[in-house]
C-alpha cells in the first residue's frame, strides 16, 4: 500500500484477541445455554415423576395436565430470553434472542391450547363452569392466563398492521406477560393436579421467585444503575441521507466491555425507568474514547423525536449488546462488508476501530444507496480509507449523469450475484462477510454469496428491526 497514512494515534494492538470471543468458545457457551434450557424444560416432569403422582387416570387427562406444565416451563423461560442478560446475549447475539422468543412463545401457546382443548373435549368435569362469579378463582385465573398469552401473541404479530404505537405495545406486552404468568402459577397451584408433592409445589414457587427476581433485575435494579450513570448529549449533527448523529458524553461510568459494532438501548429525557427506549447501533468505536455516537434515521415511531434531541439533554444507556463485531474475528485474514443505507452504522463502527488500530487486514465494502447525493458518512469513509486497506464500492440505483465516486469505485445497479462476483476478490470467499441493511437486500446478498461458495458460517448479518 502506498497510501499516505497518518501515524497510529495510540498504542492499540492491531487486533482484539480475547479467548472468550474465539469461535470455539462462543459455540461452547451457546451449547451450554441450550443444555441448560433443555434441563429447565425437563425439570418439572422429573419432579412430578420423582414424587408419588396418582396413577391410572385416562391418558387424555394426564396428557392435558402435562401439556399445561410444559407450556408453563416454556413461558417461564421467556422472561430469561427477554431480560437482556449479558451472559446469555453474548454467544447468540441480542438481536436474535427476540426472534427466538417469538418462535418459542408460539410453541408455549400451542401447548397451552392443547391443555385447554383436551380438557374441553374429553374432561368437561375438570373445567367446571365458565362464569367467573361461580367458577373457582384458580380456574378463572387459568382462563385469564390463556387470554393474556393469546393477546400477547396477537398484539405482537399484528402491531404494525393495526398501527399500535411502540411504547403502548411495550406497556401492554409487559403488563400481559406479568399478569399471564402470575395467573398461570395461581391456576397450577390452585388446581393442584400433580402438584400435591411438596417438591412440585416448591419447584413452581421457586420458579415464581426466580421470575420475580429477574423482573426486579430488569425493571428496577438495572434502571437504578443507569440512573447513577447518566449521559449528556454534547452534539447533534447531520450525516446526510436524513441521518442525525447524537454524540453522548458519560457523566458517570463509561461503557464497559464494549466491542465495535455493538448497539445499546437509548432513553432520552424520560428517565431510565421509562419503557420509551430504543436500540441503536453505536456508530463509533471504543478505541476512539469513552464518548459514544448514535446515528439515527427517523424511520418511524420515536426515532424522529430522538433525532431532534437538543444538545445538553440527559440520556440513559443500557448496553452494550450485540455480536456484529470484528473483535469476534481475530483470526480472519480480511473482511467483506455489505451495507444498505443506514445499515452502514455498525459497519462504520467496526471500520473506525480498524482505523484507530491501523489494522492491516483488507476490507472490501459494498455500500448500496438510492442516490449519490444522500450517501451518509461518505467523508468518514474517505478518511478511514486513507489509513487502512479499505476498498469501497458505492452501489447506486440511479446515479447522476457523469458521477465521479473517486477515490472509491462506483457501480450503477443493485446488490446482486453478478455485482458481488465482479467486485469481490476471489480469495475473499472464506473471509467473514458482515452485512447490515434492509431485509430484502440481505436476503438477496445471502443467496448470492451462498451461490459463490461462501460458507454459511462466514455470513453474519445484523437484524435491523427487532419488533
Amino acid at each position: 500500500m502506498d497510501r499516505p497514512q497518518t501515524p497510529r494515534p495510540a498504542a492499540h494492538p492491531a487486533r482484539h484477541v480475547d479467548a472468550a470471543d474465539a469461535p470455539w468458545a462462543v459455540r461452547a457457551r451457546a451449547a451450554g445455554w441450550v443444555a441448560l434450557a433443555v434441563a429447565a424444560l425437563l425439570l418439572p416432569f422429573a419432579v412430578i415423576l420423582a414424587g408419588d403422582p396418582p396413577r391410572g387416570d385416562p391418558l387424555t387427562r394426564n396428557l392435558a395436565f402435562t401439556l399445561g406444565f410444559g407450556a408453563l416451563a416454556l413461558i417461564a423461560m421467556q422472561f430469561a430470553l427477554t431480560g437482556r442478560l449479558k451472559p446469555l446475549t453474548r454467544p447468540f447475539g441480542a438481536d436474535i434472542l427476540p426472534v427466538f422468543h417469538r418462535f418459542l412463545s408460539w410453541g408455549a401457546v400451542a401447548l397451552m391450547l392443547g391443555h385447554f382443548g383436551m380438557l374441553y373435549v374429553w374432561h368437561q368435569d375438570d373445567m367446571g363452569v365458565l362464569n367467573p362469579l361461580r367458577a373457582p378463582l384458580h380456574m378463572t385465573a387459568g382462563r385469564v392466563a390463556l387470554l393474556c398469552f393469546l393477546t400477547l401473541i396477537a398484539s405482537s404479530e399484528l402491531r404494525k398492521r393495526v398501527g399500535l404505537d411502540y411504547l403502548w405495545w411495550r406497556r401492554l406486552h409487559l403488563g400481559l406477560a406479568l399478569t399471564g404468568f402470575a395467573a398461570a402459577i395461581w391456576h397450577v397451584l390452585g388446581a393442584g393436579h400433580l402438584t400435591a408433592e411438596p417438591a412440585t409445589r416448591a419447584l413452581w414457587l421457586g420458579a415464581t421467585l426466580a421470575w420475580a427476581g429477574l423482573i426486579l433485575h430488569t425493571r428496577v435494579l438495572r434502571p437504578m444503575h443507569q440512573a447513577r450513570n447518566p449521559w449528556r448529549v454534547v452534539e447533534n449533527r447531520d450525516e446526510g441521507d436524513g441521518i442525525r448523529s447524537l454524540v453522548l458524553e458519560p457523566q458517570g461510568r463509561p461503557l464497559r466491555d464494549w466491542l465495535p459494532g455493538q448497539f445499546a438501548w437509548l432513553s432520552v429525557g424520560q428517565g431510565p425507568f421509562s419503557l420509551r427506549e430504543h436500540p441503536f447501533t453505536i456508530s463509533t468505536a471504543p478505541d476512539k474514547g469513552p464518548e459514544i455516537r448514535f446515528s439515527i434515521k427517523p424511520l418511524g415511531d420515536d426515532s424522529a423525536r430522538l433525532a431532534r434531541t437538543p444538545v445538553g439533554t440527559t440520556a440513559w444507556i443500557d448496553g452494550p449488546y450485540g455480536v456484529f463485531s470484528i473483535d469476534r474475528e481475530a483470526d480472519a485474514p480480511g473482511f467483506v462488508m455489505i451495507a444498505g443505507g443506514v445499515g452502514i452504522t455498525p459497519i462504520l463502527a467496526n471500520l473506525h476501530a480498524m482505523q484507530e488500530r491501523r489494522d492491516p487486514r483488507p476490507v472490501h465494502l459494498i455500500y448500496a444507496n438510492d442516490s449519490w447525493e444522500e450517501i451518509a458518512f461518505r467523508r468518514d469513509l474517505e478518511r478511514i480509507a486513507r489509513d487502512i486497506d479499505l476498498t469501497v464500492t458505492h452501489v447506486i440505483e440511479n446515479p447522476p449523469e457523469g458521477w465521479d465516486p473517486a477515490p472509491h469505485r462506483g457501480v450503477r445497479g443493485r446488490v446482486d450475484a453478478d455485482l458481488l462476483a465482479r467486485h469481490l476478490p476471489q480469495d475473499s470467499r472464506d473471509w467473514p462477510h458482515m452485512m447490515c441493511g434492509p431485509a430484502p437486500m440481505l436476503a438477496a446478498a445471502r443467496k448470492a454469496l451462498r451461490g459463490m461458495g461462501v460458507p454459511l458460517s462466514a455470513i453474519h448479518s445484523e437484524i435491523f428491526e427487532m419488533v
Binding site: A30, V34, A37, V38, L41, L42, F45, I48, L49, P53, P54, R55, G56, D57, P58, L59, N62, L63, F65, T66, L67, F69, G70, A73, L74, F92, G93, I96, V99, F100, F103, L104, G107, A110, L111, L194, L456, I459, S461, I463
Partner: peptide, 30 residues
C-alpha cells in the same frame, strides 16, 4: 446466529417439551 437457526432451535426445544409431556403422561397412565 441466523433467524432460521433460531427457528430450528426453538422447534427443537418445543419438541423436547412435547416429548417429555407425552412420556410423563404415558408413565402416569401406566
Amino acid at each position: 446466529m441466523r433467524p432460521r437457526l433460531a427457528l430450528i432451535l426453538a422447534l427443537t426445544l418445543i419438541a423436547v417439551t412435547l416429548a417429555a409431556a407425552v412420556t410423563t403422561a404415558l408413565i402416569l397412565t401406566g
